[in-house]
Amino acid sequence: MSTASPVQAAAELDSVSRVYPMGGTDVRALDDFTFSFGQGEFWAIMGSSGSGKSTLLNILGCIDRVTSGTFSLAGEDVSLLDDNALSDLRSRKLGFIFQSYNLIPQLNVLENILVPLFYQDNPPEDGEQRARALAERVGLSDRLDHRPQELSGGQQQRVAIARSLVNDPTLILADEATGNLDSSTAAEILDLFDELHAEGKSILLVTHEPEIGARAERVLRLKDGRIDEVYGNQRGAF
């Protein structure tokens, strides 16, 4: 059933486990997990609550460490990197989108979009232009100096998407990105994901809602930290 992809892997996991020692028993949030996400693919990661979706995303996002196993991003083995190198990797190659937007309250829209560049060792010269262009793209160019609190949920999530794109990431990681939004706003956000996918971005979208999973190109279903099911969606089936 798995779609063997001929393209280079955006992320590749090899027998990755993430174990939380809880009292006497170990919780295996990811259990001997081996998988490869291809470049330019749009994946929905599904599964019931507690199945390990967020854990997988956090490990791919280099903010959580594997207990055992190795994984690589765009061909680079990252399981042995130190904290500094991982931070650097995040600022250059990854785009995060969270369920609760997670904008920084004391910064305005433009500044929020610029945060990932702020932490790069050699930020691009045209960072601010890029941020403005992204704000325009997500339809917020007239809100650049607004604070997050002054925006609606959908607008905040657009800012977060612009922010996740500002460093031109190889991989976009979205955890329940539409979980806090009403269905029409969620649909708009999903349209944005479609566009990004069409541009060739690699996207991993965690969701537990089947209709959102159906918007993705492919679906990876987890169960108890293991792969339950992998399948492709027919384009336009939704």
Binding site: G61, I63, D83, N84, S87, D88, L89, R90, S91, R92, L94, F96, F98, N102, L103, I104, V115, P116, Y119, Q120, R163, N167
Partner: peptide, 11 residues
């Protein structure tokens, strides 16, 4: 948030 977006500990 800042750490996830690439802030090092030194930042």
């Amino acid at each position: 948030i800042r750490r996830a977006l690439g802030a090092k500990q030194s930042h």
